[in-house]
Structure formats: C-alpha cells, structure tokens
Design a protein around this nucleic acid. Structure first.
Lengths: 356, 356
DNA sequence: TCGATTTTTGTAATCGATTACATCTTGCGT
DNA sequence: ACGCAAGATGTAATCGATTACAAAAATCGA
C-alpha cells in the first residue's frame, strides 16, 4: 500500500551529492550558489551529480544558516474581499519574482486573530511583514512591530518611526466624493462606514467630514451607518434609510461591497438609483462593473499598490530604502458610472443636469 | 536614524534563557514543549527567564531539527476568484488551529507558474500541498507529486494512487443543471466553459454532455463557448450568442463570474433574462445574490470544502488517514433564483409554467 | 624549473533548536 | 541509614546547509 509512499522517498543531502561527485560539500554548495567560484570542470561534474541524484537543497537548513527565510507575511483583514485578493496578486507578482514565499494571515475581520501572526513574526518565520490591516492601537496588545521585523503599512497611513507607508489617498478621495455629490445638487448625505476601529475607516470618515465642511454643509446634514466592510453593512444601512422620512440623496459607501448591498436593497423597494438616491462606492472592484446600474466608485490601483508595497518591503529587508520612498500615496480614479446623478427630488427646483 | 532598527534587536537564543535560569538548554526546551517532564519549581524558574528575556524559539531551527515545517502550500488557479478565497478561508480556519502556516501559490490562470511551487515543495519548505488546481497532465512537465510530499487534490478528482480527493460533485450537478433546464422546456442549450485543460472543466463538460444525452437531446443541440473562469468569458460568449439566429434558450455557465458577464452583456442588448434566455451558474459566490436578476446557481460548500481538505491533508501528513476518507465528494445545492424560468419563446407552444 | 601569486578546493565551525543517552536527585520501603 | 527505582537534569550529537579559514593546486614570470 502506498500509505507511506512519501516517507520512503530517500532524502538526498548535500553530502550525498558531494560523495557522488567526489568533492566536498563546500564545493557543491559553491557550485549551486556561486558558480564563478569553481572551475568549469568541477562545475560540470557537480551539476551532473546533482542532476543524477535529483538533489534539491533543503531550504530549512539554508534558512537557518543564512538567517534569511525568504518568506514574508501578508496580513489581510478578510480574504474574500476582492480588494485584498487583488492587492495580494500584486504582492505575489513582485515577490515571487525575487524568490520570496508569501504566508497569508487572514483576520476574517476579527482583530484578535492578529496575535497568531505576531507569533509567526516573533518566531522568525518571515523576513518581513506587509500589513493590509491597521487598527487604532489598543494598549496592552502585543503588536506586530514588537517583533522588530521590517514592516510596511498598507492600510491607511500609520505614522510611526521605521514603518514605511504605501497607501492610497483615501482622505482626499473621500473629500472629493462629497464635493462631487454636492456638485450634483445633493444636500443631505449618507455615509456607510467600514470596519470601526480600523485606521482606513477613520481616514475615510475624516475625509468625508472635511468634504462636508468644505462644501459648506453642517455635520448634521449627514447620516452615518456603521458596520464592517461587507455587503450586509450596506443592506443594513438601506433598511434604516428606507425608514427615514427625510432621506439623504447622496450616499457615500466606504467600500464597493456595502455600496452594492445598499443599492440592491433599496431597489427592491422601488427606490430608483440614481433618480431617487445617488450612491458612490470606494475600491473599484471588478464586480462593480457588473451590477445594475454599474457602480460609480473610486478605483484603487490595487495591483500596483501590492507591487509597490512588496517592492518597498523587499528594499526595507535589504536595507536599501531611500528616505523619499518612506511614504508612498497613490492616487485614486473616480469612475463615473450609473449610480450617481443630479438630484431629481421634488424638494429641489433646479435639476442641474448640466452639472454632471 | 532608525534605518537599522530591527538589526539592533538582540536575538535571544535558547542558550541565553538557559543561562538566565541556571539550567541547561535541554531543560528549557522541555519546559516549552513538554512541561510534564520537569519539576514544577524548575518550570517556574525557566518560564520566568523566558518571560523576562522575551524569548521566542527560532522556528527555523525547530523545523530543521524536527523535520516538520508546519507549513502547507495551497496552490490556487487565481486569487481574485471568490471561490478560491472562500475555500482558502476554510483551509485557514482549519489549519491555523493546528498551528500550520499557509503559503499561497497563485497561478493567475497561467499553468506554467506551477513550476515555482513545485520547487517550493521539492525544497521541503512545506509539509504538504493542497491543490485547488488540476490540469490534464502534460508529458515532460515536472509535477507536484514528484516532490513526494503529501498532496490533497481539491480540484475535480485526480485518480491517482496516494492522492486523496476532496471535491464537489461537479459532474452530477452539471448533469442536474441540464435536466433542470430541460424541465423548464428548454430545447437548445449553451455551455460557457471554464479554463480549458483544467480537470474541473473536463468534469463539468462531461456532466453537461451526460445531461444532454440523458434528457434525450443530441450534442448538436449544444453551443459551447470557451474561455477561462472569468467575467469576460461570459461577455465574449454573449457577443457570440447575440449574433446567432437560432439562439439557445438554456445556458449553463461553468462559473458564476462568466454567468454574470453573460447576463450583463445580453441585457445591455435588451435580451430579457429569464424570459428570453435562462442562465444557470456554478459556484454560489456571494455576488451572485446581488446581481440583477439574482443568479440561479449551484452553491459549492466552499468553506466546508476548505476545512475538509485541510483536515484530510493534516491527517495525511500525520499518517492517520482512514481508507474511507480517501475520496470525499461533497454535494452541491441548487439555488433557484431569478435567472432561470420556463421557455416563453414563440417557437414553443406550451409554457409549462407548472413545470417550474 | 623554481618560487611567488592567484585560484580552487577542503576542513570544520556555525546557525539554534531537539532529544538519545548518561548522570545525578529524589523518594520510598525496609 | 541504605539501596533501588523513578524522576529530573545535563551532555553532546544531530538536523543540512553555508562559509571563514587553511591547504592544495594551478598559473605565471624570470
């Protein structure tokens, strides 16, 4: 029976190859890692032995000796959110090029899970950490940075010494969203939040408030619905929205998923989008182009974000960071699609369609 | 400046703790891994030293000595497909419980990328592999199973000695899909494929053909559109569909994304779903409940699939597999939603609404 | 051809844990 | 108090590579 099949595979060590080639282990090691250091003839003999024995170096032994694991940890708040999947793709594209492995840390929106991954970092299983999460620090909680490992923050900016930031311009974009809605004639606003306690949410809401102020409105003109970055948050927000007498007409959702949930729910009650209510999302996930109507949203340069973050991390690991790269803030693109439009509500006289 | 901050963190080794506690390294090791083997008093002294020094064992050294990396590799065809994200969640839930780390392998739908991950396996960076991919073997290509590592196949069944299968009943479900469409009165069928060369696609198409035959139709009544498991495959299929004179009325798409792409595209041309064409998807991703109309589809038990696969793998690693678990085939659930309905086309006289 | 220099190769220490085996303690019965 | 078994602890080998340093071989000029 084959139950122990893989146990029976004989492990080939560098010493076996050395013996087979009639050289020392040092020479074999050199052939494999620094071929210029050996004679061509020796090289060929060793390579032949490697080939015939099917030798592959044991990477754990290499890691121990070289003190480099060639692994990085990527901590994401939730895997099923396409935003993180897309960022991860960028990270993957950049890092596997340079031989790094990616270990994923999935919090599934539960902050307390972070502890496991702090352990991972502390036990030196990885050379660096890419944080796609970011929470407002709680005292007493052991955090990633206690590990002393190189960290790159890719949530909204963490202003902390020694931690580079690779983020998008959330705050500016959110402010811009409000201005955009205001230009369309909206006067009462709704804000569907993201995960409370997350720095991203703090930033986006701050931008939103700035926008409200800049456009000359009072914070009282704003309704805020709270919840994590998921569909159901939008649905719940919509439930509340539907109960209101004086409904807001311009809604900003801190992520596409909740925007989509919101729209789906209100449309089920014959609220028209964008005629009765305009909705603008945030992220630019692929799916947002397949909803009906297609979602107006800010597109994050997700893949690039991942690449850049990974690049910064690998430079940080190699101690090759240039000071000007310590904070990268990528711009977002407003995708004007079909869930936003001028106010048509009876309260308002001028339709200002020209303002679109 | 802090550019070298993490370099200056002094690494604490087990020897340091031993010295601090006035015991040998063996004792420290025992305290940490097998506390019953030491006297209570010694235990306390050592733990205090551990605490004060902030020691965490170097996991690379542990791995080398114990020959267990406590890492598994998960190879997925494409990260941004919510199907794999969801499976990954299940895997994560199961494996991080038992202390395993997850290294991801993302093929991004490009088969040739598999080679990198074969290297990972060969160099013993992981204790086992979870294959969410599966391609029809090509000769000469070095495959995962050459690594001799425990592997669990979670794509459609790979019938190979020593490789357990944890899969869904694709074939049955697909056959069922055809029967379902046939009962609704459909007589001409469309099949939107998944990635060619993938075993999943082979299985699903086989099931489809079986269904066609079982329902008494000829394979000539079927149009097949080819492409990978992505939105645009459905869009492209729709383009072709729109050009046809005699359009199929019952469409099966091998994944929800392409089903959604298809629907979006045909609706843009005023083709009504389900009145003009019924579409049934496969996967049951969360989005499918937010499209308009909501998508009829087969729900895969994704999270459970991940958990079970991970469980089987960890048992396989520990050599605790029971023969009856070598093939697990989870059932799918048909979610009857709004993209399927009885044929209303003028060609057919009886609407057979009762057949729904 | 010889010795000095450079290049190539080998020896053995090292990375940081675990663990077999040896040795030392402790507890217990008499 | 003594002897012996059981329990606790220490010593040192080990996992499988890399690499500093030493030694040997090749190269070169005179």
């Amino acid at each position: 029976m084959s139950r122990k099949r893989w146990r029976s595979v004989k492990e080939i060590r560098i010493a076996d190859v050395a013996r087979l080639a009639g050289v020392s282990t040092a020479t074999v090691s050199r052939v494999l890692s620094d071929p210029d250091k050996v004679r061509q003839k020796t090289h060929d003999v060793v390579m032949e032995a490697v080939r015939r024995s099917g030798y592959t170096p044991n990477s754990t032994a290499q890691k121990l000796r070289t003190r480099r694991t060639m692994n990085v940890l990527v901590v994401a708040p939730r895997l099923t959110n396409p935003v993180f999947a897309e960022i991860l793709r960028g990270v993957d594209d950049e890092l596997t090029q340079s031989g790094y492995g990616i270990i994923i840390g999935n919090l599934d929106n539960r902050r307390e899970r972070e502890a496991r991954y702090v352990d991972l970092a502390l036990s030196r299983q990885v050379d660096g950490v890419l944080l796609l999460t970011g929470y407002i620090p709680e005292k007493g909680q052991r955090s990633m940075r206690d590990s002393g490992l190189p960290i790159v923050a890719m949530c909204a900016a963490i202003h902390e010494e020694g931690i580079p930031n690779v983020v998008v311009q959330d705050r500016e974009a959110t402010r811009h969203a409000v201005e955009y809605l205001a230009r369309l004639g909206h006067r009462r606003f709704g804000y569907v939040s993201g995960t409370l306690g997350s720095i991203i949410e703090v930033e986006r809401f701050a931008g939103f408030r700035e926008g409200i102020a800049a456009a000359g409105f009072s914070q009282d003109d704003v309704v805020r619905w709270e919840g994590p970055f998921v569909f159901s948050t939008g649905v719940a927000a919509a439930e509340d929205f539907l109960k209101m007498k004086e409904r807001p007409t311009g809604i900003f959702a801190a992520c596409d998923e909740s925007a989509i949930g919101f729209i789906k729910r209100v449309r089920a009650e014959r609220v028209r989008v964008p005629q009765d209510v305009s909705v603008i999302g945030f992220d630019g996930i692929e799916f947002a182009d397949y909803t009906e109507p297609t979602l107006t949203t800010f597109r994050q340069p997700l893949h690039e974000l991942g690449r850049v973050g990974a690049d910064v991390l690998s430079r940080l690991i190699r101690n090759e960071m240039k000071p000007e790269d310590w904070s990268v803030r990528l711009p977002l693109t407003l995708l004007e699609r079909d869930t936003t439009g001028p106010v048509l509500h009876k309260d308002y006289k001028s339709l200002r369609r020209s303002a679109v």
